[in-house]
Design a protein around this nucleic acid. Structure first.
Length: 935
RNA sequence: GCGGGCGUGGUGAAAUUGGUAAACACAGCGGACUUAAAAUCCGCCGGCCGUUUAGGCCUUGCCGGUUCAAGUCCGGCCGUCCGCACCA
């Protein structure tokens, strides 16, 4: 039996003593494999966290064996609120808590034999590290990308701090679920919006999962449109609106202001009570309330202000409604009820007119058809289907064919030509048109006109049409849009607006600037001091790092953090020695906010290239050699947080010339969340698996007999379903754990943790070990089927690692072992290859096996095996014989056999092929795969 | 509501990218070894029909299409998960 405890002790010590994973800049090609570094919480790691770490470790080890210089580092994202809270609870300092948690985390990671270069270990809370975080902030400040502003912020009372937009989902703090309020406060902001375009466009440069890219695109939310000015009646001021559809300007029958709109401030002084109350309530509404209101009926008030329509010069009313957001665009919209769902609802609610100015392409088809009735009728007769069906199918096909582009006459003619009975699913269109046009008879021109009129002009539309189409009802003296396709109408309108000096094209973004300050202690202090007027001054670089002061942390009780004037920051309690520095004879007050947790992780991958540098954040040569990160592995939950922030800072550093690549992470992989069964009683209290028992299909608590429900949930300590790796390792060993983490399923799928599954991977190692002890014959050559299977395994495992399909790599090992188990003697060569293939997956085992084979030194020095293609080829192959696609037999013939040979072979196996009257209409032969007789 | 993904045995999952569906493993069942249990080894293991055998039919959420051939491609449903959400 393989003694995993002995092997783990021995080899972990060996690797540490020999610094086996040390990365040094060399002449070799480099490969940078990075894991998202963890936040060292007091709860420790569970097996779910390890899945991505093990997977990236396999790649790191494989790349080393392939001759790459591999950088595979690990560190700690160690600033953060939970540590601060833990320190309060334990009456100690965040520094002490951090130190302890890091030690515990590192011990857990080392037990899994992750091949990190520990000499490069960093922690974001180390002053030697955050000195450079502050340095980057200083550069941002100098370039005007960091600024303070009185803004409406997401204030989280439970956390006692403000939060970034990215940290708030559904009006709650994404980490804890605590509600978030809106509050006006002066805060530090980073101008990420200045990089919006590049953050969006450069997504093309990286090999990332599509969902993550899509999430970033949506978050940045670029939309092209125009800003349009509406002059106020009897007033020289104007309201500016943003619209992505300036082409619908003739359909704009009123304006709507957001409750936050500044024009209202004055109106409110004379307005009636109802309006005032509405605006005040909306302005103070919490995020949660506002979201809840989205599904309700639209509300609003007429402000009694009037604006002049820029084209028609008609007077239109100005309303206020909370469906218009103060923070997006200009905080005001021109309402086009016929072509915007929200405006439509609003107009319905308040009984405002809904004039149509765009009609869908369908109309064009009808219009064209009305002029080509002859042609349609011919097709109708040729296909012997009703005229209404031909037309309906034509419309359906035209829309499906090119829904977003204008239809051309040629396109319609082609579609008509391609029509076959039943070829297109046209039920809906046929139904509608069949009724309208009345069956097989070709309708008259009048019928068409009547149909068009009824559908688009005659009555109020039943819903907003928001797609592209043809512009109608949109011509006035100087601007004629009638008949234009939407894209052209947008262009024409924009030109007109520019000429008339009442608007211009404009690109708008959903992304806002990044709120960059927090009212917490355990974060990076800003390199900023404030003068008596509260104006910020940047400290000289020589003053860095601005270290956190020693403080009595127990003072940070929740009561102390609040007072009548609002929140107080912990650093505000620091002694004057720290808080009130004297610079050039003048006394300043330090900025007492700290940076958010995301700051440190924005650039840590750079520091790993040169972690000890005290004169630079990273040496230029080191950066140029190692960067960018070739493979980055971590959870998808950072899609619009860390991954966006880090790209922003990286681009800024690129502009400064500090880094040489525009994007930091070339290839990204998301590991899925591991789930396991959790047990919860009626009150919501969770129990550990060993506290509950199952009888008759229901679960109950052993101690009390209370019933509990069992469900599958994300693995986490708080749900008592997080499995600690040390428990698994002591029973099955580190290598069996590693193999199981990978064997569970694809990396990105997460999967369900099944303790029994570990038996399989442990059994695999034990059986291989036994084979090596009992059946090894050193002089035996590796040949025949075993040689073929072995080399095929080299090939498939290599491909699997390259494409990150590690679950199938493990199963390839098992198949090879099952095959080898049938032999009575096995050559050394077989084990040599097996050990090297296994090294990235089961490193302790591979070392131990290598040594058993009499090899000198560590297997880490052995090169990755290469497969011999000539050994992989087979002389004879299985070919499936089918009749009409149905499997009838499998024949074994020469791989190079001709079709004649194959057919002869098939006839001896499948009697029905020889029956009189059997004639194949066609025979399809795919050598090595299939022989199909079609009758 | 919008965007994206996913749906295959009792379970986790494979399937050379259109060519033998269910590899590999877990669980289960039967057997060997053992005083016994564990461990280990051997066999069976999608469904239906067939007493065993031989064999046959069906099967990748549902309906339809393309193809000699569909888990894979196309269209439409249903279910599920994730992200965004009154973004003009």
């Amino acid at each position: 039996m393989y003694d995993f405890r002995h092997a783990e002790d021995k080899w972990q010590r060996f690797w540490a003593e020999n610094k086996s994973y040390k990365a040094t800049r060399s002449g070799k090609p480099k490969f940078y494999v990075l894991d998202m570094f963890p936040y060292p919480s007091g709860k420790g790691l569970h097996v779910g966290h390890l899945k991505g770490y093990v997977a990236s470790d396999v790649v790191a080890r494989y790349k080393r064996a392939c001759g790459f210089e591999v950088l595979h580092p690990m560190g700690w994202d160690s600033f953060g609120l939970p540590t601060e809270r833990q320190a309060q609870r334990e009456n100690t300092s965040p520094q002490d808590v951090t130190k302890r948690n890091i030690a515990a985390f590192r011990e857990q990671l080392e037990a899994v034999a992750l091949s990190y270069d520990w000499d490069r270990e960093i922690a974001t809370s180390d002053p030697k590290y955050y000195r450079w975080t502050q340095w980057i902030f200083s550069r941002l400040f100098e370039k005007g990308l960091a600024y303070t502003e009185e803004v409406t912020v997401n204030w989280c009372p439970a956390m006692g701090t403000v939060l970034a937009n990215e940290e708030v989902v559904d009006g709650k703090y994404v980490e804890t679920g605590d509600p978030v309020e809106r509050r006006k406060m002066k805060q530090w902001m980073l101008r990420i919006t200045a990089y919006a375009d590049r953050l969006l466009d450069d997504l093309e440069l990286v090999d990332w999962p599509k969902p993550i890219k899509r999430m970033q695109e949506n978050w940045i939310g670029r939309s092209e449109g125009a800003k349009i000015k509406f002059q106020l009646v009897n007033d020289d001021r104007h309201v500016e609106v943003f619209s992505t559809r300036p082409d619908t300007i003739f359909g704009a029958t009123y304006l709507v202001l957001a409750p936050e709109h500044e024009l209202l401030d004055e109106v409110l002084q004379t307005a009636g009570l109802d309006l005032t109350e509405y605006v005040e309530t909306a302005r103070n509404r919490s995020e949660l309330d506002r979201i809840a209101g989205a599904s309700e009926e639209k509300t609003g008030f007429d402000t009694s202000l009037k604006a002049v329509h820029p084209v028609t010069k008609e007077e239109i009313p100005i309303w206020v409604s909370d469906y218009v957001l103060g923070g997006y665009g200009t905080g005001a919209v021109m309402a086009v009820p016929a072509h915007d769902e929200r405006d439509f609802e609003f107009a319905r609610t308040f009984d405002l007119p809904i004039p149509t100015v765009v009609v869908p392409a369908r109309l064009f088809v009808l219009d064209w058809a009305s002029k080509h009735i002859q042609l349609l009728q011919e097709r109708s007769e040729a296909l012997s289907i009703p005229f209404g069906s031909v037309l309906g199918t034509l419309i359906k096909a035209a829309e499906a064919h090119d829904g977003d582009k204008p239809l051309t006459q040629t396109a319609l003619e082609n579609i008509l030509k391609d029509l076959k009975p039943g070829k297109h699913d046209s039920r809906l269109a046929v139904e509608a048109l069949g009724n309208a046009i009345n069956g097989a008879e070709a309708p008259s021109d009048e019928v068409f006109k009547a149909t068009l009129a009824r559908d688009w002009f005659g009555q109020q539309p039943s819903e907003a049409f928001t797609g592209k189409g043809y512009t109608v009802n949109s011509s006035h003296d100087t601007l004629q849009l009638n008949g234009m396709w939407t894209d052209d109408a947008i262009r024409s309108t924009a030109e007109w607006l520019t000429d008339a000096a009442c608007g211009a094209t404009h690109t708008n973004y959903k992304i806002r600037d990044w709120l960059f300050s927090r009212q917490r202690f355990w974060g990076e202090p800003f390199p900023i001091v404030l003068d008596d007027e509260n104006e910020p001054h940047l400290l000289d670089d020589s003053a860095l790092p601005v270290s956190l002061p020693d403080m009595d942390y127990t003072e940070f009780s929740d009561e102390n953090m609040q007072n009548a004037d609002g929140p107080v920051t912990p650093l505000g309690f620091a002694d004057d020695d720290w808080l009130r520095p004297e610079i050039n004879g003048r006394t300043f007050t330090r900025e007492t906010n700290t940076m958010p947790q995301w700051a440190g992780s924005c650039w840590y991958f750079l520091r790993f290239c040169d972690p000890g540098n005290s004169s630079d954040l990273c040496n230029k040569d080191e950066e140029a050699y190692w960067m960018p990160v070739d493979l980055y592995v971590g959870g998808a939950e950072h899609a619009t947080l860390h991954l966006l922030y880090a790209r922003f800072w990286h681009k800024f550093l690129y502009d400064l010339g500090v880094v040489t690549s525009p994007e930091p992470f070339k290839k990204l992989f998301n590991q899925g969340m591991v789930h396991s069964t959790s047990y919860r009683d009626a009150s919501g209290k969770y129990y550990y698996p060993d506290e509950v028992t199952k009888s008759d299909n229901s679960w109950s608590v052993i101690a009390t007999g209370d019933p509990v429900s069992a469900q599958v949930e994300k693995m986490s300590k708080s749900k008592c379903n997080g499995v600690p790796p040390e428990d698994v390792i002591s029973e099955y060993g580190s290598d069996a754990l590693r193999l199981y983490e990978l064997f569970m399923g694809p990396i990105e799928d997460g999967g369900l943790w099944d303790g029994n599954g570990l038996k399989g991977t442990k059994r695999f190692l034990d059986r291989l070990w036994t084979l090596a002890q009992n059946k090894r014959v050193p002089t035996l050559p590796l040949d025949g089927d075993l040689a073929r299977h072995t080399h095929l395994t080299i090939q498939s495992v290599t491909e699997d690692i390259e494409s990150f399909n590690l679950n199938t790599a493990v199963s390839a090992f098992m198949k090879l072992l099952n095959d080898a188990g049938k032999e009575s003697e096995l050559p050394d060569e077989f084990f040599h290859i097996f050990a090297r293939l296994l090294q990235p997956f089961a490193p302790h085992f591979a070392e131990e096996l290598w040594q058993t084979l009499g090899k000198e030194g560590s297997i880490l020095n052995a090169p990755w095996p290469e497969h011999d293609p000539s050994l992989c080829e087979e002389d004879e192959v299985d070919v499936v014989v089918q009749v009409n696609g149905k499997k009838r037999a499998i024949i074994r013939i020469a791989a190079t056999a001709s079709q004649d040979v194959a057919e002869t072979g098939a006839r001896t196996e499948v009697p029905m092929l020889n029956e009189s009257g059997f004639t194949a209409r066609r025979v399809i032969y795919v050598p090595g795969k299939i022989l199909n007789f079609v009758v």
